[in-house]
Design a protein around this nucleic acid. Structure first.
Lengths: 336, 336
DNA sequence: CCAGACAGTCGAAGCGCTTCGACAGGGACC
DNA sequence: GGTCCCTGTCGAAGCGCTTCGACTGTCTGG
């Protein structure tokens, strides 16, 4: 294991000079810099992370808390996590993966031990038990998701209210009057996950404004549950011609069911999904959808956090504007 | 920030005593221990990770390298990653998430800086470019996947050869004589990913032994690609009554296509999948499948690594035995 | 009753790095 | 020609922890 001191000796300078070459915090003459850099290369020197963390009280690590829940759509989480990791690297940070397992204690542990310089919390609930701890620990943090009370917190999320509104507008613009929403699993609503409620809010208020009839039903996802939900919807509102789906696990089942019943998409029924682009494109009918910008969310979260750690930027709530892409699953409402 | 010294002062002992209470490396009288533990609690002390790493040259961190590829089935990766993280915690380790982005350099960086005590590599290819670096850095490591040359390496993986054999046996036992395999995307085979080739090997050799006719076609996944693949298969071998699917993205399309063509599952055609249990259960037909034991693989990998770090255990290759669960998608071959 | 073993505690020396203050030398300016 | 400032470098003091050797009692066995 090569140390700073050995590099210094090899280059014929003092240890502090090597350190300043590395950090750039003081000016160094071109010749000295080159000599040091050459020694570093020749000796294959890598600064020791622990020593650096101890001396500078900065670990250059960001903690990412990923929930353990299985009722969330996993690929989205993964995509965010990967975006976080790669973006963090471009800013010189590594990412520590914390699972929900440990619960709120993880916040205490990480903040207390100086393991990470800041943290990113995913899948924040409206009234999240980690938030009080976060506020009191004054750990720099960014949330992905939107809690009820955002004072003193930085949050990044898709604007789900606008997302809901956008779906309704699209269908209304095509002449649909009766729209059904196949929502997330009941547990998601019970847990008061912000995004589900905000989407619903956007759907409902825009529907009211545009005088659409809207029916919302939670749905567990999977074939059997979706079949039950769809049957109930069509029973209550036989004139339904527009569907909005927010649960990825209900997308394909819905399409299969409509096919079975002889309802053509988009001629008889239009479907709009809120899902990752990949799901929309790979479905049996290419879906008109509002995509979940997972990568962007991860990237934004890191950039907000890095800004905080650099002393720039304050507490902000960033809501990414939704974008609806029209594909093959939506069209004009059938004429009756 | 509370330090060891402050705890020591508060408890009226020396710093080293507190350290020994924490580590348990020397015997401490019950009364002293209690006094120290009380001080730790009252002051809310957390050992500083950097200082600890510097002094002990152990970071208590495991690096997990996750590939960035999009042609791998993401939920499985995520499940493994989460299993790794939670298992690691139970052994006192945290997990650092490295993406493929950085490539082989990440191995050098992590090994050189002492950021992590060891690493777990996911999605190892038969001839992986990270392996030479790994061997030369003598970094303790465990691979998830099986490279061509395993000397000096510890690996954990599902026994894919046995998996292939198991699928064939199941179908053969039900009387099927013509079996088609819908494989992974062509890119996966070109990359020489071990698991795809090993599965194929198992399928082929067992088929030969049992005198089954086997047709293998790679498949990109998604509806359109699967439709083309299935059409080609049924064109070449109209008598095909058994399907083995290894690409999750082709599972649902396949079922939909068979339905459209009026081929009933399992009366006319049997389907066996190699996929995570959740996919098998949530599909439109509950699938007979060999499940990918993601959690177990993650857990095993961590335990192997921890054993290495503790100086126990040598280089081993652990192949988890596959288990086939019979569900609603396979049955006796139709009588002709 | 003493040698030896052992449990329990302490002091001090680092681990490898960052960073502050100091200082030498060279222009620029009046 | 002296003053001031700026650039480039160095030495030394830690950062908070682990760990080794040393020390003090207490107990055991011969």
């Amino acid at each position: 294991m090569v140390t700073l001191a050995e590099v210094a000796q090899h280059a014929g300078v003092s240890a502090s000079t090597v350190s300043y070459v590395l950090s750039g915090k003081r000016s160094i003459s071109a010749t000295t810099r080159q000599r040091v850099e050459r020694s570093i290369r020749e000796l294959g020197y890598h600064p020791n992370a622990g020593a650096r963390a101890l001396a500078s009280s900065r670990s250059n690590i960001i903690a990412l808390m990923v929930p353990l829940r299985t009722d969330m759509y996993v690929p989205v989480m993964m995509e965010i996590a990967i975006a976080v990791a790669t973006t963090a690297r471009t800013h010189g940070y590594d990412v520590l993966l914390l699972t929900g397992e440990e619960g709120p204690d993880a916040v205490r542990r990480v903040a207390g031990s100086g393991l990470a310089d800041g943290m990113i919390l995913m899948d924040v609930e409206l009234d999240d038990e980690r938030l009080p701890l976060l506020r009191e620990s004054s750990q720099p943090a960014v949330l992905i998701g939107l809690p009820a009370d955002t004072t003193g917190l930085t949050c990044v999320d898709l604007d789900f209210k606008a997302t809901g509104a956008l779906c309704v507008e699209h269908l209304a613009g095509l002449g649909h009057r009766d729209v059904a929403v196949i929502g997330e699993a009941p547990a998601v609503y019970e847990r008061h996950t912000g995004f589900a409620e905000r989407t619903l809010d956007g759907l409902r208020s825009r529907a009211r404004e545009l005088r659409l009839r809207l029916l919302h039903r939670p749905c567990e996802g999977g074939y059997d549950a979706t079949a039950v939900t769809v049957a109930r919807i069509l029973d209550e509102r036989p004139d339904t011609t527009g569907f909005v789906v927010q649960n990825e696990a209900a997308v394909e089942p819905l399409l299969a069911l409509l096919r079975q019943q002889g309802r053509a998409v988009p001629e008889d029924v239009s479907v709009v999904a809120v899902c990752p682009e990949q799901v929309a494109v790979q479905a049996s009918v290419r879906l008109t959808s509002v995509s979940l910008p997972a990568q962007e969310m991860g990237r934004h979260a890191v950039e907000q956090l890095v800004a905080k750690l650099d002393g720039r930027g304050g507490d902000e709530v960033v809501l990414l504007p939704p974008e609806l892409t029209v594909r093959a699953s939506s069209g004009p409402a059938p004429v009756r």
